[in-house]
Design a protein around this nucleic acid. Structure first.
Length: 298
DNA sequence: ACCCAGGCGGGCG
DNA sequence: CGCCCGCATGGG
Protein backbone atom coordinates (compact mmCIF):
# COMPACT_ATOMS: atom_id res chain seq x y z
CA UNK A 1 0.00 0.00 0.00
CA UNK A 2 1.44 3.33 -1.00
CA UNK A 3 -1.32 5.15 0.81
CA UNK A 4 -0.85 6.63 4.22
CA UNK A 5 -2.80 9.10 6.25
CA UNK A 6 -1.48 12.51 7.09
CA UNK A 7 -2.46 14.70 9.97
CA UNK A 8 -2.99 18.34 9.10
CA UNK A 9 -3.68 21.42 11.15
CA UNK A 10 -4.62 24.91 10.07
CA UNK A 11 -4.00 27.71 12.50
CA UNK A 12 -4.90 31.36 11.87
CA UNK A 13 -2.09 33.65 12.99
CA UNK A 14 -1.59 37.38 13.43
CA UNK A 15 1.66 39.35 13.37
CA UNK A 16 3.66 36.36 12.22
CA UNK A 17 6.60 35.98 9.82
CA UNK A 18 7.71 32.43 9.17
CA UNK A 19 10.67 33.67 7.20
CA UNK A 20 12.11 36.00 9.82
CA UNK A 21 11.46 33.47 12.54
CA UNK A 22 13.19 30.63 10.75
CA UNK A 23 16.13 32.65 9.43
CA UNK A 24 17.06 34.46 12.64
CA UNK A 25 19.73 32.09 13.99
CA UNK A 26 17.39 30.14 16.27
CA UNK A 27 17.56 26.31 16.44
CA UNK A 28 15.36 25.83 13.36
CA UNK A 29 17.93 27.82 11.36
CA UNK A 30 20.45 25.12 12.26
CA UNK A 31 18.66 22.10 10.86
CA UNK A 32 15.35 22.81 9.12
CA UNK A 33 14.85 23.19 5.39
CA UNK A 34 13.16 26.45 4.48
CA UNK A 35 12.13 27.72 1.07
CA UNK A 36 11.50 31.46 0.99
CA UNK A 37 9.73 31.42 -2.37
CA UNK A 38 6.97 29.02 -1.32
CA UNK A 39 7.28 29.99 2.35
CA UNK A 40 7.43 26.35 3.39
CA UNK A 41 9.45 24.62 6.07
CA UNK A 42 10.43 21.03 6.83
CA UNK A 43 12.05 19.81 10.04
CA UNK A 44 12.34 16.70 12.20
CA UNK A 45 11.04 16.39 15.75
CA UNK A 46 11.95 13.44 17.98
CA UNK A 47 9.22 11.36 16.34
CA UNK A 48 8.33 12.68 12.91
CA UNK A 49 8.93 15.06 10.05
CA UNK A 50 6.81 18.20 10.12
CA UNK A 51 5.93 20.17 7.01
CA UNK A 52 4.77 23.75 7.48
CA UNK A 53 3.36 26.23 5.00
CA UNK A 54 2.45 29.85 5.62
CA UNK A 55 -0.05 31.81 3.57
CA UNK A 56 -0.82 35.47 4.06
CA UNK A 57 1.21 38.48 5.05
CA UNK A 58 3.00 39.49 8.24
CA UNK A 59 -0.17 41.02 9.69
CA UNK A 60 -2.60 38.17 9.12
CA UNK A 61 -2.26 34.69 7.73
CA UNK A 62 -2.63 30.98 8.16
CA UNK A 63 -0.16 28.36 9.22
CA UNK A 64 -0.66 24.83 7.91
CA UNK A 65 1.20 21.97 9.51
CA UNK A 66 1.31 18.42 8.16
CA UNK A 67 2.81 15.27 9.64
CA UNK A 68 2.26 11.54 9.88
CA UNK A 69 1.48 11.58 13.58
CA UNK A 70 -0.79 13.74 15.67
CA UNK A 71 0.20 16.59 17.93
CA UNK A 72 0.82 18.99 15.05
CA UNK A 73 -1.38 21.68 16.55
CA UNK A 74 0.41 21.78 19.90
CA UNK A 75 3.79 21.42 18.21
CA UNK A 76 3.22 24.52 16.09
CA UNK A 77 1.63 26.54 18.87
CA UNK A 78 4.54 25.83 21.15
CA UNK A 79 7.37 26.01 18.63
CA UNK A 80 6.28 29.35 17.19
CA UNK A 81 4.90 30.77 20.45
CA UNK A 82 1.56 31.40 18.78
CA UNK A 83 0.07 32.39 22.12
CA UNK A 84 2.25 35.48 22.28
CA UNK A 85 0.28 38.64 21.67
CA UNK A 86 2.79 40.55 19.59
CA UNK A 87 0.98 43.89 19.70
CA UNK A 88 1.34 43.79 23.48
CA UNK A 89 4.96 42.60 23.42
CA UNK A 90 5.91 45.24 20.84
CA UNK A 91 4.39 47.88 23.07
CA UNK A 92 6.48 46.59 25.98
CA UNK A 93 9.84 46.44 24.19
CA UNK A 94 9.55 49.36 21.78
CA UNK A 95 11.42 51.79 23.99
CA UNK A 96 13.44 53.66 21.39
CA UNK A 97 14.20 54.17 17.71
CA UNK A 98 16.71 51.28 17.61
CA UNK A 99 14.19 48.64 18.60
CA UNK A 100 11.55 50.51 16.64
CA UNK A 101 13.57 50.13 13.45
CA UNK A 102 14.19 46.46 14.16
CA UNK A 103 10.50 45.74 14.73
CA UNK A 104 9.63 47.51 11.51
CA UNK A 105 12.28 45.61 9.56
CA UNK A 106 11.48 42.16 10.98
CA UNK A 107 7.80 42.55 11.80
CA UNK A 108 6.26 39.26 12.90
CA UNK A 109 9.49 37.56 13.90
CA UNK A 110 8.84 35.23 16.83
CA UNK A 111 11.04 33.66 19.38
CA UNK A 112 10.79 29.90 19.07
CA UNK A 113 10.24 27.53 21.98
CA UNK A 114 12.16 24.33 21.38
CA UNK A 115 12.69 21.20 23.41
CA UNK A 116 15.22 21.95 26.21
CA UNK A 117 17.67 19.26 25.15
CA UNK A 118 17.29 20.13 21.49
CA UNK A 119 18.08 23.78 22.22
CA UNK A 120 21.03 22.71 24.35
CA UNK A 121 22.57 20.58 21.61
CA UNK A 122 22.12 23.37 19.05
CA UNK A 123 23.63 26.08 21.22
CA UNK A 124 26.53 24.03 22.53
CA UNK A 125 27.42 23.37 18.89
CA UNK A 126 26.98 27.10 18.17
CA UNK A 127 29.77 28.24 20.46
CA UNK A 128 32.75 29.73 18.72
CA UNK A 129 31.02 28.96 15.44
CA UNK A 130 29.03 30.38 12.52
CA UNK A 131 25.58 29.42 11.21
CA UNK A 132 26.83 27.59 8.16
CA UNK A 133 29.09 25.28 10.09
CA UNK A 134 26.64 24.91 12.98
CA UNK A 135 24.18 23.63 10.39
CA UNK A 136 26.68 21.23 8.91
CA UNK A 137 27.48 19.74 12.33
CA UNK A 138 23.87 19.51 13.57
CA UNK A 139 22.70 17.92 10.30
CA UNK A 140 25.44 15.31 10.57
CA UNK A 141 24.52 14.57 14.18
CA UNK A 142 20.88 14.12 13.15
CA UNK A 143 21.77 11.87 10.24
CA UNK A 144 24.15 9.76 12.28
CA UNK A 145 22.41 9.50 15.65
CA UNK A 146 18.72 10.24 15.02
CA UNK A 147 16.27 7.33 15.02
CA UNK A 148 15.21 6.25 11.53
CA UNK A 149 11.83 7.44 10.27
CA UNK A 150 10.23 4.98 7.86
CA UNK A 151 7.45 5.12 5.32
CA UNK A 152 4.70 2.50 4.88
CA UNK A 153 7.08 0.25 2.99
CA UNK A 154 9.55 0.29 5.88
CA UNK A 155 11.93 2.38 3.87
CA UNK A 156 13.99 4.89 5.85
CA UNK A 157 13.03 8.32 4.55
CA UNK A 158 14.56 10.57 7.21
CA UNK A 159 16.06 10.73 10.69
CA UNK A 160 14.44 12.07 13.82
CA UNK A 161 16.16 14.69 15.94
CA UNK A 162 18.48 12.68 18.22
CA UNK A 163 17.45 12.40 21.87
CA UNK A 164 19.89 13.08 24.70
CA UNK A 165 20.18 9.28 25.12
CA UNK A 166 21.04 8.89 21.44
CA UNK A 167 23.89 11.36 21.81
CA UNK A 168 24.99 10.26 25.29
CA UNK A 169 25.72 6.79 23.92
CA UNK A 170 27.92 8.18 21.13
CA UNK A 171 31.68 8.31 21.64
CA UNK A 172 33.70 11.54 21.62
CA UNK A 173 35.40 10.22 18.51
CA UNK A 174 32.09 9.72 16.68
CA UNK A 175 30.98 13.21 17.64
CA UNK A 176 34.23 14.62 16.29
CA UNK A 177 33.61 12.79 13.02
CA UNK A 178 30.52 14.98 12.65
CA UNK A 179 32.77 18.03 12.65
CA UNK A 180 32.20 19.02 16.26
CA UNK A 181 35.90 19.45 17.02
CA UNK A 182 36.67 20.50 20.58
CA UNK A 183 32.91 20.83 21.23
CA UNK A 184 32.56 17.03 21.13
CA UNK A 185 33.22 16.60 24.84
CA UNK A 186 30.86 19.47 25.68
CA UNK A 187 28.14 17.83 23.59
CA UNK A 188 28.70 14.54 25.38
CA UNK A 189 28.60 16.22 28.83
CA UNK A 190 25.39 18.04 27.96
CA UNK A 191 23.77 14.86 26.61
CA UNK A 192 24.64 12.97 29.80
CA UNK A 193 23.26 15.84 31.84
CA UNK A 194 19.90 15.71 30.06
CA UNK A 195 19.80 11.91 29.83
CA UNK A 196 20.19 11.68 33.61
CA UNK A 197 17.67 13.08 36.06
CA UNK A 198 19.89 16.13 36.42
CA UNK A 199 18.27 17.25 33.20
CA UNK A 200 14.99 17.75 35.03
CA UNK A 201 15.98 21.31 35.78
CA UNK A 202 13.29 23.74 36.71
CA UNK A 203 12.83 26.77 38.92
CA UNK A 204 13.08 30.42 38.02
CA UNK A 205 15.37 31.93 35.41
CA UNK A 206 18.32 32.36 37.78
CA UNK A 207 18.15 28.85 39.22
CA UNK A 208 17.83 27.41 35.74
CA UNK A 209 20.77 29.39 34.39
CA UNK A 210 22.95 28.33 37.29
CA UNK A 211 22.05 24.66 36.76
CA UNK A 212 22.79 24.90 33.05
CA UNK A 213 26.13 26.59 33.65
CA UNK A 214 27.17 23.74 35.90
CA UNK A 215 27.61 21.73 32.70
CA UNK A 216 31.11 22.02 31.26
CA UNK A 217 30.79 23.78 27.92
CA UNK A 218 27.74 25.86 28.81
CA UNK A 219 28.71 29.41 29.71
CA UNK A 220 26.77 32.65 30.16
CA UNK A 221 25.65 33.16 26.57
CA UNK A 222 24.73 29.57 25.75
CA UNK A 223 22.87 29.23 29.08
CA UNK A 224 20.79 32.30 28.21
CA UNK A 225 20.01 30.92 24.76
CA UNK A 226 18.83 27.64 26.29
CA UNK A 227 16.83 29.42 29.00
CA UNK A 228 15.14 31.55 26.35
CA UNK A 229 14.61 29.15 23.45
CA UNK A 230 14.52 25.85 25.32
CA UNK A 231 12.65 26.83 28.47
CA UNK A 232 10.81 29.98 27.42
CA UNK A 233 12.37 32.22 30.07
CA UNK A 234 11.56 35.46 28.27
CA UNK A 235 13.68 37.63 30.56
CA UNK A 236 16.87 35.93 29.32
CA UNK A 237 18.93 38.23 27.08
CA UNK A 238 21.77 36.22 25.48
CA UNK A 239 24.78 38.46 24.91
CA UNK A 240 27.01 37.34 22.06
CA UNK A 241 29.45 39.66 20.31
CA UNK A 242 26.64 41.13 18.16
CA UNK A 243 24.24 41.79 21.00
CA UNK A 244 27.13 43.32 22.95
CA UNK A 245 28.14 45.63 20.12
CA UNK A 246 24.58 46.72 19.39
CA UNK A 247 23.86 47.45 23.05
CA UNK A 248 27.07 49.41 23.52
CA UNK A 249 26.58 51.49 20.39
CA UNK A 250 22.86 52.08 20.77
CA UNK A 251 22.76 52.81 24.48
CA UNK A 252 26.28 53.58 25.72
CA UNK A 253 27.80 55.78 23.02
CA UNK A 254 30.02 52.92 21.96
CA UNK A 255 31.65 52.60 25.36
CA UNK A 256 32.73 49.11 26.32
CA UNK A 257 30.60 47.55 29.08
CA UNK A 258 30.96 44.32 31.02
CA UNK A 259 28.55 41.47 30.30
CA UNK A 260 27.26 41.83 33.85
CA UNK A 261 26.52 45.54 33.41
CA UNK A 262 24.74 44.81 30.14
CA UNK A 263 22.59 42.11 31.77
CA UNK A 264 21.60 44.62 34.45
CA UNK A 265 20.75 47.15 31.77
CA UNK A 266 18.57 44.83 29.69
CA UNK A 267 16.65 43.58 32.71
CA UNK A 268 16.07 47.12 33.92
CA UNK A 269 14.97 48.32 30.50
CA UNK A 270 12.90 45.44 29.15
CA UNK A 271 12.21 43.28 32.20
CA UNK A 272 10.44 40.02 31.50
CA UNK A 273 10.35 40.66 27.73
CA UNK A 274 14.09 41.25 27.41
CA UNK A 275 14.44 38.09 25.33
CA UNK A 276 12.24 39.51 22.60
CA UNK A 277 14.18 42.77 22.67
CA UNK A 278 17.37 40.77 22.25
CA UNK A 279 16.04 38.82 19.28
CA UNK A 280 15.10 42.01 17.43
CA UNK A 281 18.24 43.99 18.29
CA UNK A 282 20.59 41.10 17.65
CA UNK A 283 19.09 40.20 14.30
CA UNK A 284 18.88 43.84 13.21
CA UNK A 285 22.53 44.38 14.09
CA UNK A 286 23.61 41.32 12.15
CA UNK A 287 21.48 41.88 9.06
CA UNK A 288 21.63 45.65 8.72
CA UNK A 289 25.36 46.07 8.58
CA UNK A 290 25.04 49.49 6.92
CA UNK A 291 23.12 50.80 9.87
CA UNK A 292 25.66 49.32 12.20
CA UNK A 293 28.66 50.70 10.33
CA UNK A 294 27.10 54.16 10.20
CA UNK A 295 26.63 54.06 13.94
CA UNK A 296 30.28 53.14 14.24
CA UNK A 297 31.25 56.06 12.05
CA UNK A 298 33.16 53.87 9.65
C1' DA B 1 47.53 34.52 5.79
C1' DC B 2 44.17 36.14 8.82
C1' DC B 3 39.78 36.90 11.00
C1' DC B 4 35.75 35.30 13.34
C1' DA B 5 32.90 32.70 16.79
C1' DG B 6 31.84 31.35 23.39
C1' DG B 7 33.94 28.77 27.09
C1' DC B 8 37.61 27.06 29.78
C1' DG B 9 41.52 27.23 32.55
C1' DG B 10 46.31 28.72 33.40
C1' DG B 11 48.84 32.37 34.94
C1' DC B 12 49.70 36.98 36.08
C1' DG B 13 48.83 41.18 38.65
C1' DC C 1 41.01 36.32 43.95
C1' DG C 2 39.69 38.15 39.82
C1' DC C 3 40.70 39.32 35.20
C1' DC C 4 42.99 38.47 30.73
C1' DC C 5 44.63 35.82 27.27
C1' DG C 6 45.77 31.69 24.68
C1' DC C 7 43.71 27.72 23.00
C1' DA C 8 40.33 24.48 20.73
C1' DT C 9 38.13 24.18 15.00
C1' DG C 10 37.23 25.08 10.21
C1' DG C 11 35.10 28.20 6.78
C1' DG C 12 35.23 32.70 4.40
Amino acid sequence: MGYYELFAQKIPVKDFSLRHTVESAQPLAFYSKYDALSNTLTYPTFTQIINVAFKGDEKKGELVGVGRHGGIDSELRRRFRLGDKMSYIYKKINTDRFIGAAIKRFYGMRLTLNDPWEATLCFVVSQNNNVKRIRSIVLKLIDRFGQPIKDDNDKIVAKAFPTSQDIASASIEELKECGAGFRAEYIKEAAEFFASNLGNVNGDYYELKEALMSVKGIGDKVADCIALMGFGKLEAFPIDTWAKRVLEHAYFNGRSKSIEALHDFTLERWGKYAGYAQQYLFWYGRQEKDWYNEKLGK
